[in-house]
Design a protein around this nucleic acid. Structure first.
Lengths: 290, 290
DNA sequence: AACGCTAGTTGACTAAAGTCAAAGAATGGA
DNA sequence: TCCATTCTTTGACTTTAGTCAACTAGCGTT
């Protein structure tokens, strides 16, 4: 296995990566081309740019100055915060970015052209599979304060999905509570799954002394499902429950959340009688931890 | 499709490539690390190194000097040509390269670790598939003089395989001739398939005026079979036969070469009665070109 | 008002990568 | 034998990337 990964890294990554760079940088330093690309058609804040590309403030400042001198970007004050700056592409900058887009397409085509119809299909399928699995391998799970913006974002997405997928709609204020202080140590714990500093999933646990801990707020963004992220969140929450003295974990869920139900069952949860008065739930699950 | 390839290039190539580089370069400039790696345990000629890494002569010279000063390589005269130099790794250089090997393994592991058993399997399968297809897309087909070393190498490999796979053994001197002058324009044509300047397959055509041209020396290296390279060689040879006024192409083959037979049939060849006195052949195929 | 903090700019560097031309030694034909 | 060509080295650059510290301006809290 390791041997195959190494071969892949060598054959595909190296060559394609080099090509990619050469296609991207026209007669411009690569770093500038990357910045130009990353700004995007909408513009973005300088600090966001810096953190996304992991640039030194000095370096970033000079790169932007240089793009500005070439007439490709304009830098003006961001909204609220008068320390921060906003970069936007000028029409010339947009044209340049479109050109990068075009070359990027051209490069992609160059992968496909020499292959038969059937092999193109296979190439694209393998790329999709690999992209997803590599992304999954890059996901990191970290504890978070439930009031943190990233946590709030996840919870909002979770509620929105519940509301969309259930016949009755979802009311976050009804049913069993899971207030921030209940999901903060020592009362409980909340986790967020990050993919390159983007939150892509969450989960929380609420302890009840000796009684089974409750799993709450399990959610993974739609594009990242089926990659084991839910299972990893669950496993870490269970470990936390165990550390806290719980003998089991429990959760409830709605009948429409079929992937979630399948995931719980695969993780060893078994259906038990209703144990909460959550009006939104149709199924109750429990798993023994020892 | 193009969109998926672009996503792949962005997500996988860029990140993995960057990681790769950081793992490779220890506290050494990346270019030096690459040279150290590329020299290989056997050593190699400086000019080969230069062309493989596409380095400027001056740059290459200085990189090697620097590695020599660190005691990692020795440079002495190559065999025959006294202008050329040979680089070899010293024991220290070999140790350093082994360390790069180790880190490369570690990097490969880091892809696999966060994934479940099943997903690792899928990751590795997708990588294998992709590596092969990308390699296939990089193959270039070029005409060649049948006396060129690359052509000779292919023909030798071809003969060796015939000998190995037939019950009777194979005698290149028996049967229908295909001497170099018969495979050189205007009498015929020989093609070699190159993957990064490595010959990985060949094929030739021998014209007979109005009569069907004969396809000879069709061979693809074992690791690159099933990727459409044989089909591409065949198509170019047929186009050449057509340009030369032939109405059809013919070929004979041994019953043990099952992949080849399948490939000919997929390319539109139909079995015809014996048309040559090639003692080694069991099947005769023909395809009409118009 | 004072304090610690964040966002960005600027100056002064260094290291790495890469380019170009000149030149010496050796080679391979015409 | 001559001549164009190849392999390599060397000197003299330039460009790119990146680092570090000092500094200004603005924010938020106490």
């Amino acid at each position: 296995m390791v041997e195959q990964v190494r071969r892949f890294n060598r054959v595909v990554t190296q060559r394609v990566g080099a090509l990619n760079d050469r296609f991207l940088a026209r007669d411009r330093p690569l770093a500038e081309a990357r910045v130009l690309w990353e700004i995007g058609p909408e513009g973005c804040e300088v600090r966001a740019l810096r953190s996304r590309l992991d640039l030194d403030p000095g370096h970033a400042s000079r790169l932007l100055r240089s793009l500005e001198d070439d007439g490709l970007v304009e830098i003006d004050a961001a909204g609220g915060d008068r320390r921060a700056r906003m970069v936007r592409l000028t029409p010339a900058g947009l044209a340049e970015r479109a050109e990068l887009d075009r070359r990027s397409d051209e490069l992609a085509e160059s992968f496909l052209v020499p292959l038969s119809r059937d092999r193109r299909r296979r190439l694209v399928d393998a790329m999709r599979e690999l992209e997803r699995l590599v992304a999954a391998a890059m996901v990191e799970i970290r504890p978070i304060d439930p009031t943190h913006p990233d946590a709030r974002l996840c919870i909002r997405s979770y509620f929105a999905e519940l509301d969309r997928r259930s016949e009755t709609g979802f009311d976050p204020d009804a049913g069993v509570s899971a207030e921030p202080h209940e999901l903060t140590p020592p009362a409980g714990l909340m986790l967020v799954a990050y993919l390159r500093s983007e939150p892509v999933g969450c989960g929380a646990v609420k302890h009840h002394g000796d009684a089974p801990s409750e799993i709450k707020r399990m959610w993974v963004t739609e594009t990242m499902r089926g990659l084991g992220i839910g299972g990893r969140l669950l496993a870490e929450l269970e470990a936390e429950a165990l550390r806290h003295g719980a003998r089991a974990t429990r959760l409830d869920t709605n009948r429409n959340l079929t992937e979630a139900i399948a995931m719980y069952q695969a993780a060893g949860y078994v259906e038990v009688p209703r144990f909460s008065d959550e009006p939104f739930a149709d199924h109750w699950f429990e798993r023994s931890l020892r």
